[in-house]
Design a protein around this nucleic acid. Structure first.
Lengths: 224, 224
DNA sequence: TCAAAAGTGTTAAGTTTACACCCATGA
DNA sequence: TCATGGGTGTAAACTTAACACTTTTGA
């Protein structure tokens, strides 16, 4: 009754491409590996899928172990299955990207893993096919961020329009016109003005906005 | 020196969502399973990844075994890793979609596997999570076909503009204006008019066009 | 001769882009 | 008082959408 006998089994891993946004720049949380294999080199955060755990769950677990964060926006990029992608052993890896609010993670936990936030434009060389995973993730985000409001996962709950614009400029790698940008935001009724003012970014202070997810589910018009 | 010991290994499979286009309709090549597990039910075409073979290669092999076709346009959809997705055993599956010219496959081979072309709007229930794989693939194609000329893989080398329009209408599930459609095609210089006429589709005959891939690589402006 | 599919331009509506100055505040 | 980032509207350029008739030919 076992139709699966004599098929080969494989190690299956997950690798997490963790994006954060800080001071107008996109950052990645990367590991300076203080363990084998490839000790001393930079890599994404990864781990093996365990018995009784779905692949999605494995990715969430790895992220949780590294950052202390649960309930994070995370999506699969793709499976990577080249035979020699990991020179040590045959490992099939499923890549995920995560968008996190860079103020919310557990600093000690991250430090204890020897992980660092690296500006996405100043990346070191990465092991295996992690570079390729990262590029795929960046392209995915670029596409996806233009038609769905996923960028907000990178911001605090309350944000200024300048922060939002800078974020999108970082994602796309190009500058936008301030007035045109604000016109588009004004059309999206689920990006709601609050009565709070942020005084950190300027003397005058800037209006804080918030994303109303329930309102988005009703309207669903998003384009940036 | 083995950093991978005591990790769990998994069966890894591929499943292929094979699209064809015929008489104005999108079709899927589905298996009426005459083997266990789930004998008698409908499924996508799948197979296990083998030792020494990349996951992409496994997908190509499965397609080749089923249709006799090599060198087919094929892309990964996603990995599917729920614990109970296959009720028999834990199997992690990577889904791929393929776009094939419905005139070119090996009919006997397909018949011998008990496979059938089914209109995409009249699909039977599928086993496991194959329905979800299919929906993901359809969405992917919709998106991708709008910005890259992948649709041509579903057509013969020479095609009429009416065929091309009908194809895109089938992909998007909506009708287009004929004049506006042709205006857009005319702007894409890599869709080249030939001196041949198709007399099969109408009495008057329709001009045949072809896709010039080299010209596309230079220009790369595509939007439908 | 007529049914059936092929082929062909123009105009209005809507969307996108470019662009410059005043405001409020803390140092 | 002045340097800094916050905030605001309009007009031109471009893109998209709507729309109907003539042509060709085999049955």
């Amino acid at each position: 009754m076992n139709y699966y006998h004599e098929k080969t089994k494989f190690y299956v891993a997950v690798d997490c491409i963790i994006f954060g946004f800080s001071e107008g720049r996109l950052n990645l949380l990367l590991l300076k590996r203080n363990f084998e294999p490839s000790k001393g080199q930079w890599s994404l955060m990864g781990g093996f899928v365990r018995d009784g755990e779905s692949v999605d769950e494995a990715a969430k677990r790895v992220l949780q172990e590294m950052t202390g964060l649960g309930n994070v926006f995370m999506e699969q990029v793709s499976a990577f299955g080249e035979v020699e992608r990991d020179p040590g052993e045959r490992v099939i890896s499923v890549a995920y990207y995560a968008l996190i609010n860079i103020n919310a993670y557990d600093r000690e936990l991250v430090q204890s893993h020897n992980a660092f936030w690296i500006d996405i434009n100043e990346l070191p060389e990465l092991i295996f096919d992690h570079q390729e995973m990262l590029e795929r993730a960046r392209n995915l985000i670029k596409q996806k961020a233009s038609s769905q409001p996923i960028g907000f996962n990178l911001l605090p709950k309350l944000f200024t329009l300048t922060q939002l614009q800078t974020l999108y400029e970082a994602i796309y790698g190009e500058a936008f016109d301030k007035r045109n940008f604000r016109k588009r935001i004004a059309e999206m009724k689920f990006i709601e003005m609050t009565d709070k003012i942020d005084k950190a970014g300027s003397k005058r202070g800037a209006r804080l906005y918030k994303m109303n997810k329930a309102a988005y589910r009703k309207d669903r018009k998003f384009k940036l």
